[in-house]
Design a binder for these strands. Structure first.
Lengths: 176, 176
DNA sequence: TCACTTCTCTGGACACTGTCCAAGATACTG
DNA sequence: CAGTATCTTGGACAGTGTCCAGAGAAGTGA
C-alpha cells in the first residue's frame, strides 16, 4: 500500500469515528482498521495480536474499551457463538451466523433485510435494537466429509429434511 | 413433597434420561431436576449451587459434563446471552430470548413452531439442528421506567417504530 | 447375584475472556 | 496554547469453561 492510499484510508476511518461521535485515537483507528480490512470473525485477543503484529503498542484493556465504544456506536458488531466466544466483525452489512458443532467454524448467513432489527419478537412494550439468529448444526464441509465416509450421520440428517417446509423457511429474508 | 411424589418424580427423570440414551446417574438426575423444577435461566455455577444447597455433593467439572450430555441429547437447552453467559433451561418448549441492554434481564419469547429448527438459513448443504434468535434492546419494564422519567430515550424508540412493518415481523411464528 | 466392561465423577490445575483501577497521556474546545 | 474531559496503560482480579488421571458407579451378560 502506498503512502497516499494509507492516508486516504486513515482519513476515511477518522471520518467514520467522528460521524459516530467518538474521539479519534490511535487504538480506535488500529482496531477499526483491522476489523475492517480482513473478513471473518475475530476474538478480542486476536484483534490485539493483529494490531501488535503491525508493530503497534496496545494493551488488552484498551482493546476491550475500544471494542465497547465501537460496538455501542454501531461501527462494529458482536455475535455470540458460544460461551466466551465474542465474535467481532465490521458492521458493514447486517447478517447472521451458522456455527458448526463439529469443526466450530462460524459461517456468515446473509440477511436480505440488512437493517436492524430484521425480526420482531412477540414482546409488547419492548424496544428492539436488533435480532440475531444463530443456527447450529453441521456445516456443508463436515456434512460432505462424513457422507464420503459412509453416511454415519444418517439419523441426524432426517431433522434437516423434516424442516424444509417453506412456511418454516426464512430464505426470503436471508437471501436464500 | 411426599415420598410418593418424590419417587414418581424420580421415575420420570430416569425415564427421560433413558429415552435420551444416557446412563442414569445421581448428578444427572440432580441437574435435570433443578433445571426442570424452577423456571428461568441458570448459569452452570448457579446449577451447582442449587444442587449443593440440597445437600448433594457435586464437583464443578461434573456439572459441565452433565450439562454437555443433557444439551447434546436435547434434554436441556443453552442460550448465549453475552460473553461468558451460558443460560441453561429445561428444553420442554422451544423458545427464543430477549436480552435487555439496560438491566440485563433475559426474557423468554415463545416460538409457535415449537420444534427445531424453526428457521432455515440460506446455507445449502448444511445440516441445521436448531435456530436461536436473540433480540437485544430494552425490556418493557425499562422502557416504562424511562418513559415515566420524561422520555430521555426518545431517539432510540424511533428504531422500534421503523421496524413495525408486518413483512418484517415474525409474530406468526413466535406466537405474537 | 456376580464379575466385567464401559462410562461417569471427582478435585485440582489451568486457560481463556472480560472487568476494574489509578496514574499518566492524549484529543478536543475555546 | 492552556484547560478539561476523555482515553490508554499495565497489572491484578473474577468468572467461566476445559483438561487430566484416578476412583467409582452403571449397565450387561452369564
Amino acid at each position: 500500500m502506498t503512502d497516499e492510499l494509507a492516508q486516504h484510508r486513515k482519513a476515511e476511518l477518522v471520518q467514520r469515528l467522528r460521524q459516530a461521535g467518538l474521539r479519534v485515537t490511535q487504538p480506535r483507528l488500529w482496531v477499526l482498521d483491522v476489523l475492517d480490512r480482513v473478513s471473518g470473525h475475530w476474538s478480542a485477543d486476536e484483534v490485539l495480536a493483529a494490531v501488535r503484529a503491525r508493530g503497534a503498542r496496545l494493551s488488552r484493556a484498551t482493546v476491550y474499551n475500544v471494542i465497547h465504544a465501537l460496538v455501542s456506536s454501531g461501527l462494529v458488531m458482536v455475535a455470540d457463538a458460544g460461551p466466551g466466544r465474542m465474535l467481532l466483525e465490521s458492521a458493514r452489512v447486517w447478517h447472521h451466523h451458522f456455527v458448526c458443532r463439529d469443526c466450530g467454524t462460524v459461517i456468515d448467513v446473509p440477511c436480505v433485510i440488512g437493517a436492524k432489527p430484521c425480526l420482531q419478537p412477540a414482546l409488547p412494550g419492548a424496544e428492539v435494537d436488533e435480532a440475531q439468529v444463530i443456527w447450529r448444526g453441521r456445516c456443508p464441509r463436515c456434512v460432505a466429509r462424513s457422507a464420503s465416509r459412509g453416511g454415519e450421520h444418517a439419523r441426524q440428517t432426517s431433522s434437516r429434511t423434516s424442516a424444509s417446509a417453506s412456511d418454516r423457511s426464512i430464505g426470503a429474508w436471508t437471501g436464500g
